[in-house]
Design a protein around this nucleic acid. Structure first.
Lengths: 138, 138
DNA sequence: TTTCATGCAAACCTTTTGCAGGATA
DNA sequence: TATCCTGCAAAAGGTTTGCATGAAA
């Protein structure tokens, strides 16, 4: 792996990601960053996100549309994804102990970690659905 | 939702998917199907996979490269993904029960289901790694 | 004969890459 | 000055879509 040099853009990307809780896509980050730095390019955002993921400073998550999202929090934790608005939320639930061991006894190889995402409807979207249903019922 | 009519291609897609255990991508299915039906098109494969997913006949999985994979088995079960060769393997059901309940008590909305994927190295890839390491050690 | 499905190709969207110039150490 | 990084634009890879034709009900 080659040596990293300081870069203003990389620092901005990391700061921006740190400041938010919405696990943005590369493009969401790009749109936000270009407000302060109109010359920043999407390619730079992608390149730095890959780099930061490689060295373990951030984490990459695949949402169910196959679009990658990024997480500043690299500690083990789980997520909740809204099926309606695609919002991705951290869950305070602790990591479930011994989960990797449970898979391990199968005849599959080496189990290192796991990804657990809960799906459903966030409070906001659920409220909207209730409202629509109530109008139908009239 | 509109009415489905019978289609030879859709039946072939479903049969092919049923016959395999590797959770293929759309293109893997396409490559396999065109051996029997050289005129089938990739667009048809995609359209039918979406359709079948919508009506719940099959399930869609996102692997960590953001490429979609398809599963004939729609019952609840978990998967193991090899970080080296991207192989995706079924794990026997019922490793953990009541997982949705764990998320539910949080203040997030409605939890309907979840996706749990274990990551590691399959037996084949692990063997290869051991072999490479042993040569290095000499 | 109406509705749905197909093949083909173009379009689309996210992500990667080549390259010449710019910043860092 | 050697190495890394950037912006830009083009290319790549997966997926969707428009359209004219074909099959099913």
């Amino acid at each position: 792996m080659k040596d990293l040099k300081y870069s203003r853009q990389r620092e901005a990307i990391l700061d921006n990601l740190k400041s938010r809780v919405d696990h943005p896509t590369a493009d969401m980050l790009f749109q936000s960053l270009r407000k302060d730095d109109p010359k920043i390019s999407l390619g730079t955002v992608y390149r730095n996100l890959s780099l930061l993921t490689e060295i373990g400073r951030i984490k990459k998550l695949s949402d169910r549309n196959g679009i990658e999202r990024y997480d500043y929090n690299t500690t083990d934790h789980y997520h909740f994804a809204c099926k309606a608005c695609s919002k991705l939320i951290d869950l305070p639930t602790g990591i479930i102990a011994g989960l990797d061991e449970k898979a391990k006894h199968e005849d599959i190889g080496i189990v290192e970690n796991h990804s657990l995402i809960f799906y459903g409807y966030c409070k906001e979207c659920y409220q909207k659905m209730l409202y629509i249903d109530s109008k139908k019922a009239v």
